[in-house]
Design a protein around this nucleic acid. Structure first.
Lengths: 213, 213
DNA sequence: AGTATGTCTCTTACGTTGTAAGAAAAGCAA
DNA sequence: TTGCTTTTCTTACAACGTAAGAGACATACT
């Protein structure tokens, strides 16, 4: 009498695997993600995932592509008549959506944008900027400047990503004697408003390009 | 007759271990770094490293601290009389030194600056900016804006970090039909000059803060 | 000289990881 | 039923981080 195993199918798909990976990474942090744990989270053995994804590296690639596309998608769909507004809302939208997936951000930050939908967004942004009179090269610079600033700023904003807390030293032992200005700022909270700073700097960048239109 | 092993000491130190780790990571990429391989690079067994470093995570922390300190050290030692010049040279110096350790950059990008010498640099920069008349909060914003932009921009500049080449799809298959502007820019190379863009945008950011002094 | 004491390095071992190879079950068609 | 395709699992292996402790080296003291 052999044991009769009931093994109904899990009904997975590449999309579901990537969804679960994104959720897992946002909750537990990148380093905690293993194929076995992701499998468990999906009610499946690790090797099953390889039916949907050729390797862990490819899973990461898919994760990045998905998240970046979701972050960029629709951002410049209806460009404003004012190119500045287009640029500013692009930057703010991009940052806001990146913040939704803090676990994936470190992955995004280390790979160039290389996906069709990313290209679409860039193309539309370039079209809007060029239509307003910005030379093509300047339009590209503006787009890239906003993108890279958004990434750098957002990385700082999320701080040490989930999953690194164990290693973290106490956040700061700033000596008011040797670092009076730093200590005062931390105490008062001044200069630590990420929203305000991002808004201001994006504005500065956009204004910097303005004389060229 | 027991085998007589000659085991002269390797003469290691925490510094040498971190040096070797930085060199290894710059050459082979972060993911390639294992304790065993780093040991081999130093002519030593993996476990020997644990005499100098309590864990791999701590090794990473040390690597980041070292590299960031090296990147920041001396950058604002002799602030110019012109605060703009101070800000601009800080940004350029920071970027230039970050570019020297592309392998460590992804690690840096995901952790907050939390080291004494980093604080020193911040304190000096704040002093210079405040002396010029910038309100404390704005001085902090300027410093952080330049730092985060430098990180984001440099990440984009090094592209996919060493050790990820295998996974890389061909860099870009941009269709001139659907993405004419993008294709034209890539073809002409316009808007792809990292030096020029960084210089320009840093200038815009600094000028943006100027009205507040 | 020997011996004791610390400093440094190695050996062994365990649990976890990514994944190659292929068996086996589930679903569907004939 | 038989067969075929799609999906899942089992088994296995090399490489990883590192705990525990043994052993070799260096130095100081008798």
């Amino acid at each position: 009498m052999t044991k009769q195993v009931s093994r109904p199918r899990a009904g997975l798909s590449r999309e579901k695997v990537l969804d679960a990976a994104a959720a897992f990474v946002d909750e537990h942090g990148l380093p905690a993600l293993s194929m076995r744990k992701l499998g468990t989270a999906l009610g499946v053995e690790a090797m099953t995932l390889y039916y949907y994804v050729p390797s862990k590296a490819a899973l990461f690639d898919g994760l990045v592509e998905r998240t970046v596309e979701a972050a960029l998608d629709g951002l410049v769909d209806r460009p404003s008549a004012d190119w500045r507004e287009t640029a500013i809302s692009f930057a703010h939208g991009y940052r806001a959506r990146l913040l939704r997936h803090p676990g994936v951000l470190p992955l995004i930050a280390t790979r160039p944008v290389n996906s069709p939908r990313g290209f679409d967004t860039a193309e539309r942004a370039l079209a809007a900027f060029e239509a307003a009179g910005l030379p093509a090269g300047r339009a590209m610079d503006l787009f890239n400047a906003l993108g890279t600033f958004a990434i750098g700023h957002t990385l700082a904003e999320i701080g040490r990503p989930t999953g690194h807390e164990e290693t973290a030293e106490p956040p700061a032992e700033i000596d008011a004697g040797t670092h009076p200005r730093l200590a005062a700022l931390v105490a008062s909270g001044e200069g630590l408003d990420f929203d305000a700073r991002f808004t201001a700097v994006v504005g500065f960048i956009v204004e910097g390009f303005a004389p060229e239109v």
